[in-house]
Nucleic acid binder design. Structure first.
Length: 800
RNA sequence: GCGGGUGUGGCGGAAUUGGCAGACGCGCCGGAUUUAGGAUCCGGUGUCACCGACAUGCAGGUUCAAGUCCUGUCACCCGCACCA
């Protein structure tokens, strides 16, 4: 068969579309499979081969599931709100709507050319009114339930993008969008109270099947720690200085206290602080530093001792100095710490620099050299002396603190509430109205969606206000409660909003009464298998699990977790071994590959190039190897005659069915394809195969190279599509060959092989080895002290 | 620093419970065919002192047998990073 990929591929893409084979049916009697990929952001650059790899894993699983008889939901959509589109609109004067439509069109055509088996009838676009209506609806539900709230706070602000960023979007002190330095700015901020769900997000991980490193990253991100709050006295006042510590067992070793530069007690006790000028100067210096600079200066501790106020250790009444230092963060715990230099590295560094006492309370280290952070026998610690178990010491101390009323057990999380507003145009408007009489009033549900108004100028204001603030028709409104003049919130939601629930909309994408019907949700949820990039493990995944758990608590979704299983693909690196990027010019465009080699070659190569979960460099010559493979497959029908099984091929066929079926389930596509290549080599060596065997072969290959396989399948006289043909089954007994080649070792050294019946007994195998001339000569004259026989594998004789 | 992971030919990568290291593909070498080839087909291809020995980052250990298990060590990648 001449392998004319371009006509074959166009032909089958059309047939699939006409036959609607990839549509998920709301037929609740069938077993379902919901496979999900991270919907793309439709950027102007179009897709690159990394997208193809990201989607190909679940694509293959979904195709296999259909052949196994499942009702498969494998949807696609576009996460289309966001800054790059808006920035492009500002630059070119095009409306973001037009830019988005254009980009979606481009992505759609690229995706269709690759032959993905998406259900295109369920496509969602987060920027469509029918979609963002429900994003706003969920926001209002959160508002109603106290999970969306407004606060004035120091926020991460990007002066270049003119936008407030969440902690997740400003990691390393750089803006996630433009890469510029972020600064701290005081602003009115909308928050989603994700911290309320911290424990549920943590414990929920026990119910789900995520790759271990994915779970670990989420656990670290949530950052739960247990310890105690302790109230230290403040000399000369009736006030307390409250701290959080994970090591209450070291309370007798406290020699100073440290508070964050932003700590409110500084203002409160201004009168008592003798060196207030010095303190104030230090605070000003800290405020100038970005979060990034602060964390960069890890080694070099700075600070100022507060003169005039000191603290009292509640367990022994000792008077201890208080310092202000920027190594203590206002955003974690209480913004104040008890410092135990003997057993904490940071406190140790600080104490050394400022000449503060170091009291050892745990034996085992040399505190003249370094802090000792391991466990050991308690000393200098009153009622804890002699204890050696850290856990017991902590429990005893906490019991004591509670009894005396000076402290209590506590829990802290690194995760912070989610800063949720952006001063930008291309996002979901936050549906809140400000009324002088009623305060913050939600837009009534029946008025959703709150539409984005038409705007001429998408530039944010210099003061960082949203472009929507310049549209009086949008801003000015009546209070829904009292009818008096009011104004609207002009900020929009961050890009993460729309992606926090899109997998629910796929289930019922055209429903205008609910975000999705309960009946359909009950059938389709949870997502059975979600694959995506590692970069979304701590943001998108945690955000969407949070939204879903909130909806679960309202009784609106049927399960406590949205994703039953989560895996991640590795990057495709450029041919130069470096991450693909426009600036390096090493990006491979899937369109070019489809043009030159065809979609099937692209698909097979991407899954064959290496371990799916690892990064691997692009190689055009390896890609050509996959082309040669498919060309040889295309010639198989000429070799097919007769029915039943070819004796020389029977066991390898059964082995291949077993291996390909198993490997696909483990995302080991590279070895599945390697097995199919091996089998092809065998078939060519034999010279022919039966029609039944050809049928098995192309069904196994069809999830990888669906177009070519449909073509061959049709050529064999099948009228039904291979996309819905039955997945081949194997017979375990037939995977076993009648004879095996076993390795023969003498004293653990390989001396040769011997062919024996696969069910040979140890006695017969050893007899056969002894009867063999070559091996017999090696044994002659020696005593065999041990005989090892591993069926089907190895015979090892240990001689003396 | 903490957490997660990876080290195997010239390259991408394979190796059930420890059981013939290097599957499969690329590249390379030789041959066939071709006006020509960066096309196609056939054969070969871990290294070396080549009838044998040595090889899975390095050094030890357990074992009849180690890429796989144990101890130590080095290198690299990813994530978080003064989280008290």
């Amino acid at each position: 068969m001449r392998y004319d990929f371009s006509s074959i591929e166009a032909k089958w893409q059309k047939k699939w579309e006409d036959a609607e084979v990839f549509r998920a049916r709301d037929d609740f009697s069938k077993p379902k499979f919901y496979g999900l990929i991270e919907f793309p952001y439709p950027s102007g650059a179009g897709m690159h081969v990394g997208h193809i790899k990201a989607f190909s894993g679940i694509e293959v699983i979904s195709r296999k599931r259909r052949m196994e008889g499942y009702n498969v939901l494998f949807p696609i959509g576009f996460d289309a709100f966001g800054l790059p589109t808006e920035n492009y609109a500002i630059k070119t004067g095009m409306h973001p709507r037009q830019v988005t439509d254009k980009n979606i069109k481009k992505f759609t055509s690229q995706l269709k050319r690759v032959g993905f088996s998406f259900d295109w009838s369920r496509t969602v676009d987060t920027t469509e009114e029918g979609y963002y209506k429900w994003t706003q609806w969920i926001f209002l539900k959160m508002f109603e339930n106290g999970l969306a709230f407004k606060d004035t706070a120091l926020v991460n602000y990007c002066p270049s993008c003119k936008v407030v960023l969440s902690n997740e979007d400003s990691q390393g002190g750089k803006c996630d969008i433009c890469g510029n330095e972020i600064i701290q700015k005081s602003k009115d901020v909308w928050y989603l109270r994700i911290t309320k769900y911290a424990d549920k997000l943590l414990s929920g991980l026990e119910e789900v099947d995520y790759l271990p490193n994915i779970k670990q990253q989420q656990i670290n991100w949530i950052g739960k720690s247990t310890g105690a709050f302790v109230n230290f006295g403040l000399s000369g006042t009736s006030e307390k200085l409250r701290i959080y510590t994970t090591r209450p067992d070291t309370l007798f070793g406290v020699t100073f206290m440290v508070i964050a530069p932003e700590h409110p007690m500084l203002d409160k006790h201004r009168e008592s602080i003798k060196n207030y000028d010095e303190v104030e100067a230090y605070r000003a210096e800290c405020a100038k530093k970005t979060e990034f600079e602060r964390t960069q200066l890890v080694k070099d501790k700075t600070g100022v001792r507060i003169d005039g106020i000191s603290a009292v250790n509640p367990v022994n009444g000792k008077d201890i100095p208080i310092y202000i230092s920027d190594y203590v963060m206002m955003g974690y715990g209480t913004g104040a710490i008890m410092a135990v230099p003997a057993h904490d590295e940071r406190d140790y560094d600080f104490a050394k620099k400022f000449g503060i006492d170091i009291i050892e309370v745990i034996k085992g280290g040399d505190i003249s050299k370094a802090a000792y952070t391991e466990s050991g026998e308690m000393i200098n610690s009153g009622f804890l002396n002699g204890l050696t178990d850290k856990k017991t010491s902590i429990e005893k101390m906490i019991a004591y603190l509670e009894e005396k009323g000076i402290g209590e057990p506590g829990v802290q999380y690194k995760m912070k509430d989610w800063a949720f507003n952006r001063q930008r145009y291309w996002g979901e408007p936050i549906p809140i109205i400000y009324c002088d009489k009623c305060g913050m009033v939600p837009v009534p549900y029946d008025q959703l969606p709150l539409r984005l108004p038409e705007v001429k100028n998408f530039e944010p204001g210099e003061g960082g206000e949203s472009p929507l603030a310049k549209i009086p028709e949008f801003v000015n409104c009546k209070c829904p409660k009292c009818g008096s003049d009011a104004h609207r919130e002009t900020d929009t939601m961050p890009q993460w909003a729309g992606s926090s629930w899109y997998f629910l909309r796929y289930i019922d994408p055209h429903n205008d009464k609910e975000f999705a019907s309960a009946e359909k949700l009950k059938y389709w949820m949870p997502v059975d298998w979600y694959n995506g990039g590692m970069e979304h493990v701590t943001r998108h995944m945690i955000y969407s699990r949070f939204w879903y758990k909130f909806l679960y608590d309202l009784g609106l979704v049927p399960t406590s977790e949205p994703y039953a299983k989560r895996t991640a693909q590795g990057l495709i690196l450029g041919p130069d071994g470096v991450k693909m990027s426009k600036s390096r010019g090493n990006v491979v465009d899937p369109n070019d590959i489809v043009d030159a080699y065809g979609a099937d070659v692209l698909r097979v190569y991407i899954l064959f190039m290496g371990d799916y979960a690892s990064a691997a460099p692009w190689s055009e010559s390896s890609l050509r190897g996959c082309k040669r493979f498919l060309e040889r497959v295309a010639d198989l029908p000429e070799k097919a005659k007769g029915t039943g099984a070819t004796p020389a091929l029977e066991s390898i066929f059964h082995k291949t069915i077993k291996k390909v079926s198993g490997d696909i389930e483990e995302l080991k596509f590279n070895t599945a394809i390697a097995q199919l290549m091996s089998l092809l080599n065998e078939i060519e060596a034999v010279g022919s195969l039966t029609v039944d065997e050809l049928s098995v072969y192309i069904r196994l290959l069809s999830p990888f190279a669906p177009h070519l396989c449909e073509e061959i399948w049709e050529g064999m006289g099948n009228r039904k599509l291979i996309a819905v043909a039955a997945w081949p089954e194997y017979d375990e007994n037939k995977t076993i060959d009648s004879t095996v080649e076993m390795a023969v070792q003498i004293c653990g050294k390989l001396k040769g092989t011997i062919t024996l019946p696969s069910d040979v007994t140890k006695e017969n195998a050893l007899a056969a080895v002894r009867a063999d001339e070559k091996f017999a000569s090696l044994i002659e004259g020696k005593t065999v002290v041990k005989e090892i026989f591993v069926p089907g594998k190895i015979i090892n004789l240990v001689l003396k």
